[in-house]
Design a protein around this nucleic acid. Structure first.
Lengths: 254, 254
DNA sequence: GAGTCCATTTCGTAC
DNA sequence: GTACGAAGTGGACTC
């Protein structure tokens, strides 16, 4: 682990430091006054101001102002960093192809430039994801409803893989869509696509709602949305389609 | 504009610098070896390693490794930063409420700590957004189809606001959904919701497909998806619903 | 505050 | 590489 750092460098000095850092594969942090322009999937321009530029050895570039979680400008990993002194400014440019994109940062002043060779853990252990919710349901199917039997996860269909496929106490097929947090109407649409695909595949009535043409009490394929909660509009759409909502968190309440 | 910077500070020195920086409302960049833990909407742990910690005066906190565009851990704007020395380590903690979330970074070593008072332009001019696509269509409606007349943007419906509402050459209502880039099946679902809502509102046949029960050639409300391109599955769903796709970019080709 | 939807979404994974 | 869906999505805007 090594850190190099220069305070108020000349553009020439900053250029040397940058090129060395690129060479070493360092993570770079640069404070300075700059303009930024981007051209690629969209196009943008940013006038002069003080910002933090972060350059990563994997090609990622981030321009941060003093506000917001999102960088005001950036370039994705896989880009190539180049630095040069042009027209009295330090120009740092990150480019990539497919899609063709380019980010250009022009520093009128570099106030602080640091670079660190980075080692060590990159792997995060995360809890509370949709996968945790699936695990929870597979271990305790009765949380969905008494008699529920999961049969398959990521079951393929013409509409894509459904989160959990199973049957209820009556043997009726159930498509379960999992969401780790409160959901809106889009999730119902997603569930509807899977149910529809399965109904077509099984050659059963694809009428929405709780009754089919034969007068049975339930549609031949049920849809269940498992999520902590749903919005009003989502609840309406669930009712329209004859689907059920089961309120469940990815991790048990404390 | 002022930059303060310390190299290999003791935890005590780093603590002073951090507290001064918080006081001044500076943007902070810190290189060091640390562990990170998060608890809130989910929960996560990250073992020891070299990282870059960015602390913003608006409360945002970002932990970056040497890879990826996304921070490996973060805290949203509106959080509060606190620093302390605990158990021989420098502990930086960002917390917020609603939802309750907390990010804790524990440095065994701080290698470089810089802080800059930030001023200047924060406003980005961006081109190529969905709004640009809408503008383009409103100025040249024939790009959608000859005879198309836009009547309203963001027209309300029970399914939410539709991007553009208008009529075709025959006076048939058209719902236009705009996407700035290639789309999958979800966009078709979105369009379908709006068309469905409008059909209900107008009290017309809500049968999917190109023919209605009276034997007319077109449904009483048409759906048009304007996007640079669509995936195969999206195209299928468009055909199922009897909707049209118009290939159009948010900005004219060069 | 909640709901809804866009985003240069990013990111992972399967095909 | 493309497609599809999850994400601690973030962020803007409306109600």
């Amino acid at each position: 682990m090594t850190v190099t750092s220069v305070h108020d460098p000349s553009h020439r000095e900053a250029l040397w430091e940058l090129e060395d850092a690129f060479e070493r594969g360092d993570l770079v942090s640069a404070f300075g006054t700059c303009t930024v322009s981007y051209e690629g999937r969209a196009a943008s321009d940013l006038g002069p101001g003080d910002r933090l530029l972060v350059l990563k050895p994997d090609g990622a570039a981030l321009v941060h102002t003093d506000e917001g979680r999102k960088p005001v400008n950036w370039q994705p990993p896989g880009s190539e960093h180049h630095a040069a002194v042009r027209e009295g400014r330090l120009r740092v440019r990150s480019t990539r192809s497919n899609p063709d994109e380019s980010l250009t940062v022009r520093f009128s002043d570099v106030h602080q430039l640091s670079a660190m060779s980075v080692t060590g853990g990159r792997d995060l252990t995360l809890h509370g994801s949709e996968e945790d919710l699936r695990t929870r349901i597979l271990e305790r199917p009765e949380l969905v409803e008494p008699g529920f039997e999961p049969r398959e996860t990521e079951r393929p269909s013409s509409a894509g893989p459904m989160d959990v496929f199973g049957v209820d106490a009556d043997g009726t097929p159930i498509v379960v869509e999992l969401k780790r947090r409160r959901v809106g109407p889009d999730a119902v649409g997603q569930l509807a696509r899977y149910v529809r695909a399965l109904r077509e595949e099984l050659g059963v009535d694809d009428t929405a709602g709780g009754d089919d043409a034969d007068g049975d009490d339930a549609p031949a394929v049920r849809g269940v949305l498992v999520a902590p909660s749903v919005t009003d509009r989502a609840a309406e759409r669930l009712a329209d389609r004859g689907f059920d909502h089961v309120a469940l968190d990815p991790t048990p309440e404390e």
